[in-house]
């Protein structure tokens, strides 16, 4: 039984380990380790295309995670006092957002936005005071942030709600009985209790956006995120530079995940 478990863990981690190992390979060869070197990290980090893609990915991940955490937490709090059809509708939307595969979300967002933009752009051009300077809506940062934010928001709502379910409601009542304002109660009682959930939700939202390929593939327009860059590079062949980028991407996600997990665990013990 132990040996079996060990084998499964090896299966899960050896491929990742090999990617990491060969990112430090001095040579180009994909099966022989020819000495330790960090040259491929240097190459990756001085490649302007990689840095552009990384900037785009970080901007999108940060913006969508911040917006999703803010609006998701607000919604999770409001949903506590909502029953009936509105509650059912929100529950359904959250599950649809999580369950519909990324590829369907991607194509649906693509054709919906392109159709709406085709329809809005002539109107914008007509009503804009300076005809030449009229803004033109296109796919790009906005659509990436909006599409990633959707899934991320559903994630935040689920996590914050789970956290709220384990919250001691009598504390809130006590706080109100003792004369605290609703804002004071929120800041001093509710927020400290749900904060681990909010932070974990933020970290997961960021990780999701940073790693997502399929939705971005459809709605990125002329922008290139890091996963899109990596995908198109892989099609041109396996290089140690991709290993270096991949190892960094895995490292960032692992760090954020461990942080999210630690926050949730500590929150559970304190709560």
């Amino acid at each position: 039984m132990r040996i079996y478990a060990l084998a499964v863990y090896l299966f899960l981690y050896i491929p990742i380990g090999i990617i990491a190992l060969f990112s430090f390979n001095a040579g180009r060869h994909a099966s022989q380790f020819q000495g330790f070197s960090t040259q491929w990290y240097g190459k990756a980090l001085s490649n302007p295309f990689v840095m552009d893609a990384l900037t785009t990915s970080l901007t999108v991940a940060l913006s969508s995670a911040v917006l999703a955490t803010l609006f998701g937490t607000m919604a999770a709090m409001a949903l506590q006092s909502v029953r009936g059809r509105l509650r059912l509708a929100f529950d359904a939307l959250i599950y649809i957002a999580v369950m519909v595969p990324g590829i369907v979300i991607g194509i649906a967002t693509l054709i919906a936005l392109v159709t709406v933009f085709d329809w809005l752009n002539p109107i914008l051009a007509a009503i804009w005071p300076l005809a030449d300077a009229a803004p033109k809506l296109t796919l790009g940062y906005g659509s990436l942030i909006a599409a990633h934010g959707l899934f991320a928001m559903a994630l935040v709502i689920i996590i914050v709600r789970a956290r709220m379910a384990g919250m001691d409601r009598s504390l809130i009542e006590a706080s109100a009985d003792l004369g605290a304002t609703p804002w004071g109660t929120f800041r001093q009682v509710t927020l400290p209790q749900i904060f681990p959930g909010i932070l974990a939700g933020f970290l997961l939202a960021f990780t999701f956006s940073f790693d997502d390929f399929i939705i971005a593939f459809f709605v990125a327009g002329s922008q290139t995120t890091l996963p899109i860059y990596v995908f198109s590079s892989i099609r041109r062949g396996v290089t140690p530079e991709i290993n270096a980028i991949g190892t960094m991407v895995l490292g960032v996600s692992l760090l954020l995940l461990v942080a999210a997990q630690a926050i949730l665990q500590r929150g559970r013990k304190a709560g």
């Binding site: 491929p15 990742i16 090999i18 990617i19 990780t207 790693d211 990596v230 892989i234 396996v238 991949g246």
Partner: peptide, 11 residues
């Protein structure tokens, strides 16, 4: 929760 892209690349 880590990139499926990189994990497939490993294979």
């Amino acid at each position: 929760w880590t990139s499926i892209l990189i994990r497939s690349y490993a294979w």
